[in-house]
Design a binder for these strands. Structure first.
Lengths: 236, 236
DNA sequence: GTGTACCGCCTGTCTATACAAGTTGTCAAC
DNA sequence: GTTGACAACTTGTATAGACAGGCGGTACAC
């Protein structure tokens, strides 16, 4: 629970923006005013504002202040590493998860062009439905230190289990989105015909100590797929 | 040209990582060592490292140091707001751009669920080919302060023209990726059949002062589409 | 040999201060 | 009225110092 001041300030401001306490298009209080408000130094306030900037909640304009952006976060933040179940909670969707496979297996030798260590892994396949319709098939390999996953946890929130019970810190991921003809097995699950296209999202997920930890291949029905992103211009 | 020290340090380190001078998996010099090396304070070095962390070039591990990640940036960084032409240069692809439309027009009233001001805009449609094959159709509306775009600039790098000649500072964008049946007009350009699916990327691009400035709809041939992303876990 | 306590090195957080640089409004000069 | 200089705001950059907390090796005690 012990969060840093910068995180507390960032969370508080983010909450107030979400609650429209600070309106889109308006300015946040100045950095000096926030220092007085929270009783901290300017450096700390600035770090909080920097994380809001990165999230796309505000835009800082030199000489003016921090403009609150009108950013709908209530869509599919595939960027940002949010799990399917966390999305359901956030969006209030009526979604269900069925575990199709949950057993030890060896992961593929290569994935997204990287060599994968041939350690024993947990193979997890899950079918996601929304409004009764199949929408996504998730195919995961979980590497050590994960030893096994209770099916109940896989049906609820896998990430909450891993971060909460197992004490893992998930840090970052590389993702790739492509569109391909559907694979025979996935055809049935997603209720598609052979030759139809599916959206394939592959990701490599890493822990805070840079350990590779999860390989995921997600098959989405193209008519149900939607990816939203917020991006800042890179100047390096 | 006057760049800040943090930017210079970040650029220098990024270059050395790209040039394998710092190997993937190895540690960067410690913050203190970098302070000595660049003759700056620790705060400055830390800001440079923070931007590398955000880009996915390094991962900081407390008590150890900054681990260099093995991150291939030489793919389609749709996240990150890089233009088609910048990509060509970076990847050395043999690509051409043909301007199909370049004339004043009024933009659509709504786009990505947002109301668009009914100002006069420049309507730009461009066909992108790679290896002789049509790959992407870009459909842009450029809002004021842009008044007109030389066709030559649209065929080269639109962003270089806007940021260089016009002095605009492009800051951030909201994007959406979906898959839809192809529109009749786009069918011909991309060499597809009616009823085929295309990947549609819509984006709203904003300047540093939060002015909306560009609406883009990109139609990609599904077999040529690939989107790569680096994402960090959000904890707010 | 086997712990265990410690120490040195590393990053994370926070503070305080100074100056540069952009924006906006005011007020005086013309 | 228009212009221009200025002052009072804002954020951006850089500095230096202090302490907390995680990691890893060493050396000591048993």
């Amino acid at each position: 629970m012990e969060k840093s001041k910068q995180e507390l300030i960032a969370a508080d401001l983010a909450g107030k923006i979400q609650a429209k306490q600070y309106q889109a298009g308006a300015l946040l209080p100045s950095e000096q005013a926030l220092c007085d408000l929270y009783g901290t130094s300017r450096g700390t306030v600035r770090k909080a504002l920097a994380s809001l900037t990165e999230l796309g909640l505000i835009q800082k304009v030199r000489g003016k202040g921090s403009v609150v952006l009108d950013h709908q976060r209530f869509t599919f933040p595939l960027s940002g590493l949010t799990s399917f179940q966390e999305l359901n909670v956030a969006l209030g969707m009526a979604a269900t998860t069925t575990v199709l496979v949950n057993q030890p297996a060896t992961p593929p030798a290569t994935f997204l062009g990287k060599a994968i260590p041939a350690k024993q892994a947990i193979h997890l396949t899950r079918l996601r439905k929304a409004g009764g319709q199949p929408v996504v098939v998730d195919d995961d390999y979980l590497l050590p230190p994960v030893k096994s996953v209770p099916t109940a946890a896989a049906e609820q929130s896998l990430y909450r289990y891993l971060e909460g019970e197992c004490g893992l810190t998930i840090a970052y991921a590389e993702k790739e989105i492509t569109v391909r003809p559907v694979d025979s097995q996935v055809t049935d699950w997603l209720n598609l015909a052979p030759g139809d296209l599916v959206v394939v999202v592959k990701s490599l997920v890493y822990l805070a100590d840079t350990t590779l930890f999860q390989l995921t291949t997600s098959y989405h029905r193209p008519d149900k797929f939607r990816f939203q992103d917020f991006a800042r211009r890179q100047r390096l």
